[in-house]
């Protein structure tokens, strides 16, 4: 019964969500049909679809859509995974050891609110205009939320849960893998989702400077040449890709921690 209700509820929210998307599309379509605004500003959906087919097959300035998307996602994944593998252990460490927190916090608090673009020029200066500076930028963008959430995970473990484990014979060393780490998983996942969002929004910044491919670069370059149809298409592709990435993480989260939200 409960599952059925939940299914129905999901269907309802999906339906309502589709209505808003369809509504916007309809307005866009009407604007295009009635030629209210010049194609230069708002291209007809048909032109955008043609641009999609054109860039998908013939490519845009040396690469098909898939190539551009692929090189962007490659950078994203590179920077993001580095942030996950460093950020999660570091966050747990800061949460577990007050001394690590005292040592690292001032540094972290300084770097955390900096907009990534502020230090991007410096990264280019140090690491060159190739892939390394871009990946490093995405890495630095994804890192803070991952660290902060892993740390919050440790700080939010119910103390009685630790007591329960100890009274059931957990040794201090086993305690980490038996209780602390799994207890932190819901928070860690929140960090992973926010982190990929931060990295993704920084992607376009990373591709502003000295890139010759990538979906972010495609948006900028099409804008520069007033190819509004391609620009629209690329923005839509970026949006959909972002949604898919979040959906992937959410699905993984539901698989791994179905108990999230319960104590």
């Amino acid at each position: 019964m409960f599952l059925y209700m939940q299914g129905k509820k999901e269907l309802l929210s999906f339906g309502l969500g589709s209505i808003s998307i369809l509504g916007v599309f309809l307005i866009w379509y009407l604007v295009g049909e009635l030629e209210v605004v010049s194609e230069l500003f708002i291209p007809h959906p048909r032109s955008v679809w043609r641009a999609f087919l054109e860039v998908s097959t013939d490519g845009y300035r040396g690469g098909t859509l898939l190539v551009h998307l692929g090189s962007s996602l490659g950078r994203l994944i590179g920077g993001y995974f580095a942030a996950v593998f460093l950020g999660v252990p570091l966050g747990l460490l800061i949460g577990l050891y007050p001394k690590a927190r005292i040592l690292l916090n001032p540094l972290f608090e300084f770097y955390r609110p900096l907009p990534p673009l502020a230090y991007y020029s410096l990264l280019i200066l140090w690491l060159g205009i190739g892939e390394l500076s871009k990946i490093t930028l995405l890495f630095l963008a994804a890192l803070p939320p991952i660290i902060m959430n892993a740390r919050a995970g440790v700080e939010n473990i119910p103390l009685h849960r630790i007591d329960a484990a100890r009274t059931l014979g957990s040794r201090p060393r086993g305690l980490f893998f038996q209780v602390i780490f799994p207890s932190c998983l819901p928070f860690i996942f929140t960090g992973l989702r926010v982190g990929i969002g931060f990295a993704y929004t920084t992607l376009i910044s990373a591709e502003i400077v000295a890139a010759v491919n990538g979906i972010g670069w495609l948006v900028l370059d099409a804008g520069r040449f007033l190819r509004t149809d391609i620009l629209f298409m690329a923005v839509i592709v970026m949006g959909v890709t972002g949604m898919v990435l979040d959906l992937l993480l959410r699905t993984l989260e539901q698989k791994l921690i179905p108990w999230k939200g319960y104590q």
């Binding site: 009685h160 007591d163 329960a164 209780v179 319960y262």
Partner: peptide, 18 residues
């Protein structure tokens, strides 16, 4: 220190949800 022969249980069950 804790010992398996003296086991403590709480007002809240504090089960391991995973």
């Amino acid at each position: 220190g804790p010992d398996r022969h003296r086991c403590l249980s709480f007002q809240q069950p504090h089960l391991f949800p995973w």
